[in-house]
Nucleic acid binder design. Structure first.
Lengths: 342, 342
DNA sequence: CGAGCCTGTTGGATCGATCCAGACTTCGAT
DNA sequence: ATCGAAGTCTGGATCGATCCAACAGGCTCG
């Protein structure tokens, strides 16, 4: 029974189980995939044989026949130096856990800088994955439209900004305007009136979205916004520079930032000026990164519900296999984690 | 030529290419796998056909026949709250990049808390992966020995502590004693003489390893170590508590920590006491995490060469497929990244 | 000039699980 | 006693790439 090829004992096959249980291969296959087709005693006998041999279906064979690998492709974008943003990592954790519950595994592939589509293309042609989860919709939706043109099944974490209403694929996103508003309201509640915004460049649609949450909350309380906003690169250094400029020119008592990276830039400038975050100046970030959780005295930050997002994405993915309904978009609400910095 | 099944255009097969090029399937297969077996003009003709159809071998079929999936399994351990340690994430990035160069993809599976072996077992039985990379050798080597008993091919990131000399599998590790010594020497050079150690509990063999680097460097310069060491849990809270105790009782001017998490604990306590890191008290961490890179004024930390480690692991993995030599262990040297905290 | 060798190519078998069509059993209804 | 239908179970074909044994055609060499 235990054939040995090289160093590795060959796992038992369906035929082995069938022989042991005294039934045909098809019956074993049914026992695994359609148990209710079998008579009770036959099922029990087959299951005992499966148990005894420790049988599991060979993935390659099953995948060849069914044209489905139960694998989901996820592109890992290149690491960006000088940022605190490890959102993708938390997302990967959440996704691995939830997709395992649904019987999927996550296949990672590198995001080559040159051709963003290369990795997708290879996996698609070789039918290595059943679907993709696309996370980099920030950059403009070139990947989405390419996948669509290839008729590849995928769901996106992030709105299709080009065409928010009539999306042709399911997506899940976080209502980040609401998140920024949450942070702003929180500071207003603490008594701040001159609350500055540090965000991303105008090209970044998500950045503009978040900024609108800040300005909406400010206007709702009739607070001034003029001269209190700046738009910079998403790095600690530029966050720090923006903070210096705003402190000198607009005298804010609080900062709402579009990312933890920028908020850390604020903390750096405060540190350099001997100002105490949370006492002299309040700061909030976005993403609830590890850095936000650990930096003294703790950075108040908007937390994206990545676990929920992952669950919704996997659910949408399963919907893809079925009938072609109109693709759905889901917007999840973030929460605010208050810490020492506010 | 473009058969359409459901919504997905079926990719071309080897037979399609053969027909277009006017050769047999075997010849196409050779063009892909053993190009030097073909005459030059035939090869060119086949390659043109491959190009035209955008052919890539079906992974499931190839995998079924060759019994090799070109996938590497990696277990993602559950996230630990209250820690700054996202070493695994940086490692995943490095591994995805280097393994892609070698033609492998990374398959992630969740580390269920209950049975650490469950995920491995499933993938092994279903022949889903060619090999594993094991990262959690800290916990005692139960996974390694289980994999060994199942004759599963794997390499470890981390020494086999039970049996460092006569390892039965290849491993790659970082010389973390040298790393701690590096940090200690750095502080001695800056003029510090009372340098405290905050490390992990004695059961953690890696922790003891790092501690020995500190004490060795101290002894080499005839500096005192008595009363200057403490061993605690790897959390920010306990790092902070240890700092408070050491400051009160032993009056150190610098702290060497076994992890960035502990070092952040030190920063928290300094912050609470109004002491300035890098000016009043020096601090070093371990792992060069994102938190270390971003916390003001920057945390000096020992950086593990994860990119090199990933490359060595993939190299070792390829060695596994070949003849059974004596498994090799590789020890890499870390570097020190000096920042504002020292 | 034919044996022997190399190169390039061929059809058929194979990997392991699932799909398909058909056969056999059981059982209530006529 | 016969029939049909539902419920069980079976052998053969199939997914696509690779392995295998064998075979043309061109070449050298005795």
């Amino acid at each position: 029974m235990s054939r040995v090829i090289g160093r590795l004992a060959a796992p038992p096959t369906l035929a082995d189980v069938a022989e042991l249980a005294g039934v045909s291969r098809q019956t074993v296959s049914n026992a695994v995939n359609n148990p209710d087709l079998l008579r009770e005693d036959t099922l029990a006998r087959v299951q005992a044989a499966i148990e005894e041999l420790g049988y599991q279906p060979n993935r390659a064979a099953r995948s060849l026949r069914t044209r489905s690998s139960r694998l989901i492709g996820l592109r890992i974008p290149p690491v960006q130096e000088g940022t605190a943003n490890a959102l993708i990592d938390r997302f990967v954790h959440a996704l691995v856990d939830t997709s395992a519950d649904a019987g999927y595994h996550i296949l990672l592939f590198p995001g080559e800088a040159g051709d963003p589509v290369a990795g997708y293309d290879e996996l698609l042609r070789s039918t290595a994955v059943d679907a993709f989860i696309v996370t980099d919709t920030l950059q403009g939706d070139s990947v989405s439209s390419w996948l669509r043109s290839r008729r590849a099944p995928f769901v996106a974490f992030g709105r299709p900004w080009e065409n928010p209403e009539g999306a042709t694929h399911p997506w899940v996103d976080i209502d980040s305007a609401a998140g920024a508003a949450l942070a702003t309201e929180h500071l207003i509640e603490k008594g701040h009136t001159r609350i500055a915004w540090i965000g991303w460049r105008r090209e970044h649609l998500v950045g503009e979205e978040r900024r609108s949450g800040w300005s909406r909350a400010m206007h709702a309380h009739s607070l001034p916004t003029t001269g209190l906003a700046s738009r910079v690169e998403d790095t600690i250094a530029s966050g720090r520079a923006a903070t210096a400029a705003l402190l000198n020119e607009a005298a804010p008592t609080a900062f709402v930032c579009a990312s933890d990276t920028l908020a850390l830039g604020v903390l750096h400038e405060l540190h350099a000026r001997g100002l105490r975050p949370g006492e002299d100046i309040a700061v909030t970030g976005f993403d609830d990164s590890i850095a936000a959780q650990t930096v003294p005295p703790g950075l108040t930050s908007v937390r994206q519900p990545l676990e929920d997002a992952a669950a919704e994405l996997v659910k949408a993915l399963e919907g893809l296999q079925g009938p072609v309904g109109s693709p759905e978009g889901i917007l999840l609400q973030p929460t605010l984690v208050a810490r020492g910095s506010s």
